[in-house]
């Protein structure tokens, strides 16, 4: 379980998160949605201890993230951020293999290789395994980084906009893989999504954030109502139900 309690955060005096309290039980796919600047990425990065906590408490399976050794936490929780910066001349396989670092510290065992092969296969990277990251397209590179996070074998996967750069085919495939990861094992996925309809189609639970607060928390059908969406994004959207799933028509003229 991820427990977030009374977390506030300010960036150079500007409040980004205001007293956020929420807990995410183990299992399930939770989507964070909300307008730009709502604090979604900051919340995720605080859970993954990429930034120091300013106030409040965050614990993952009872381990406080600010006081647990990084290596220990890296076996329970992993994060993939949207911008990875410049990458060197590493092959896809080498990168995915670094997902095993928290377990093997570089001395890869047969089990590590099994994990690496499984991740490459799951994210459709088998043909690219020997390619250099610097020769890949943005979307392919993105998949390689998600495969690395998956290869880490943690109970919790935090993903910050993993669908950036992906075409519809790979976007859908990515969400289906993440759904499999949640359904097949006892894994928990927390994902920042910009496309509300991906959240509607694949998430078990949606946290809607605005101005550093959680505005709504519940199943897609509970959260994605015209009133709530207007409060979130500032304009009226039509919401339809189609084959048991909610669809938000947010792009009309």
């Amino acid at each position: 379980m991820i427990e977030i309690e009374g977390v506030s955060f300010a960036h150079r005096g500007t409040p980004v998160l205001r007293d956020v309290t929420v807990s995410l039980p183990k299992g399930g796919l939770t989507a964070l949605i909300g307008p730009n600047g709502a604090g979604k990425s900051t919340l995720l990065s605080l859970v993954a201890r990429l930034q120091p906590l300013q106030s409040g408490r965050i614990a993952v399976d009872g381990m406080p993230v600010d006081r647990t050794p990084g290596r220990l936490l890296a076996r329970s929780l992993t994060i993939m951020r949207q911008d990875t910066g410049p990458v060197g001349r590493l092959t896809v396989r080498e990168l995915v293999g670094f997902g095993r670092f928290p377990h093997s510290r570089g001395r890869q065992t047969a089990e590590d290789h099994r994990h690496i092969d499984a991740s490459l296969e799951r994210f459709d990277l088998g043909d690219l395994a020997a390619r250099g990251l610097d020769t890949l397209s943005g979307g392919q590179r993105q998949r390689a980084f998600v495969a690395m996070a998956f290869c880490q074998g943690t109970d919790y996967l935090l993903l910050d906009e993993p669908l950036n750069n992906l075409d519809p085919m790979y976007g859908r495939q990515m969400m289906r893989h993440l759904r499999d990861v949640v359904d097949g094992g006892q894994r928990t996925v927390v994902i920042v999504l910009h496309d509300i309809n991906y959240a509607a189609a694949y998430a078990d639970r949606i946290l809607a954030m605005k101005d550093g607060r959680i505005l709504a928390d519940g199943t897609p059908a509970e959260v994605l109502t015209p009133d709530r969406l207007e409060a979130l994004f500032g304009y009226r959207m039509e919401v339809r139900e189609f084959e048991g799933r909610v669809h938000v028509l947010h792009h009309g003229p």
């Binding site: 990065s45 993954a48 201890r49 990429l50 990084g70 290596r71 220990l72 936490l73 890296a74 076996r75 992993t78 994060i79 993939m80 951020r81 990875t84 910066g85 990458v87 060197g88 590493l90 670094f98 997902g99 670092f101 928290p102 510290r105 570089g106 980084f145 996070a149 880490q152």
Partner: peptide, 18 residues
């Protein structure tokens, strides 16, 4: 190995427990 991971940046490194 740790140095190669560090070359991917502070965030990726921290995520991998470095």
């Amino acid at each position: 190995d740790a140095l190669t991971i560090a070359s991917l940046g502070r965030e990726v490194g921290t995520g991998l427990g470095l």
